[in-house]
Design a protein around this nucleic acid. Structure first.
Length: 339
DNA sequence: AAGACGTGGTG
DNA sequence: TCACCAAGTCT
């Protein structure tokens, strides 16, 4: 007999009660003015969901508007040039999302006649669309009953249902998805799904959750047992290692030499100062910068060097046309301001 | 299964 | 300065 990893209180709401409670809360207290909630189409839902992966709402908003101005439809995006795609994603991070979204548009145009399918399985064929995004598209684009699990849902469910085990372990994830499916309402899933996200973002927050404002407080496992700050269980993070890198700079009053990075490195396909694999010998240092990634810290040294005449020299005024890594963009802005 | 993959906001 | 976090996916 295995120990159950879920503790349901006798007070737990039925799926119907649970979804009705959340939907009522959403109508009164949820977010209704986000840009992608205004006249949503399957395309705008896909764009917003990809941009919102691991990225906060406030950060996404300006990118979302700019994106739709340049690429209003699947067809427009499918026909776009990759440099413009990356330039418009510049600063958002996780750049494979941009290339996947570009590929997704081509896939939808070619395979689905420019219309998103309604089934989870078909949606999952699309580059960059994983289990969460497929559920989000069904929910937000089509108002269909489909489970959706993101960080908000994991946190809210872990607390409400008392799901133990390390967050993102296979066992934990399976349990959350199982509950998400069980509690998905057959009708009005769009507003229910939005309620899950908005509750997680505004009430059931990671730190200092607003339990007194929560419509689920009287039946919440964590609230009843006063372990809200213990759930979901997180693995202690290992400190980030530090790596070193060296970049060469060759510039004048007109512009600066840039190279396009490969697909297998960080900052794939972005334009960057040329990177040296090893510390250059006897080079003149031009400057340094530090940068923190999700999985390591970078200490970078920039050295002066003479680039081959065949290298691309980008005019200062043309930099916005290229996608540059955020720290490189900052560094070059400073260089230019000192000209 | 675990690691790669960005960045900016916040306490 | 620093730890933690944010609507995950891919390999």
């Amino acid at each position: 007999m295995t120990k159950p990893n879920t503790y349901q209180t006798t007070l737990a709401l039925t799926p119907t009660q649970f979804s009705e409670c959340l939907k009522t809360w959403q109508r009164e207290h949820g977010r209704h003015n986000l840009p992608w909630q205004q006249n949503p189409t399957p395309y705008t839902v896909l764009v917003s969901e990809i941009m919102l992966q691991q990225t906060q709402v406030a950060t996404v908003i300006p990118y979302y508007h700019r994106w739709l101005q340049h690429f209003p439809t699947f067809q427009a995006l499918a026909a776009a040039n990759e440099d413009l795609v990356l330039a418009l994603w510049q600063g958002l991070g996780y750049y494979s999302r941009a290339r996947n979204l570009h590929r997704a548009a081509r896939y939808v145009v070619d395979q689905f006649n420019s219309e998103l399918p309604h089934s989870i399985n078909a949606l999952r064929e699309i580059p960059g669309v994983g289990p969460y995004t497929a559920g989000a598209i069904c929910s937000f684009a089509f108002d269909l009953p489909a489970p959706l699990v993101d960080g908000n849902v994991k946190r809210l469910f872990a607390r409400y249902f008392g799901i133990t085990g390390e967050v993102n372990s296979t066992k934990f994830n399976n349990k959350v998805w199982q509950l998400a499916e069980h509690y998905t309402p057959p009708q009005d899933n769009r507003i229910y799904a939005q309620a899950l996200l908005d509750m997680g973002a505004t009430i059931c927050t990671p730190r200092q959750p607003q339990c007194t404002q929560c419509p689920l407080q009287t039946t919440c496992y964590a609230r009843q047992t006063q372990c809200v700050d213990k759930l979901p269980e997180k693995k202690k993070p290992t400190p980030l290692p530090t790596r070193f890198a060296w970049f060469g700079i060759d510039y004048n009053a007109t512009g600066v030499v840039l190279v396009q990075r490969g697909t297998d490195a960080v900052w794939p396909r972005l334009w960057c100062l040329p990177e040296f694999l090893n510390a250059p010998v006897a080079a003149i240092e031009h400057g340094q910068f530090r940068h923190v990634f999700s999985h390591y810290k970078l200490t970078a040294t920039v050295v002066q060097f003479k680039a081959p005449a065949t290298n691309t020299r980008v005019a200062w005024d043309d930099l916005p046309k290229f996608g540059l890594p955020a720290p490189i963009k900052r560094y070059l802005a400073k260089v230019r301001s000192n000209l």
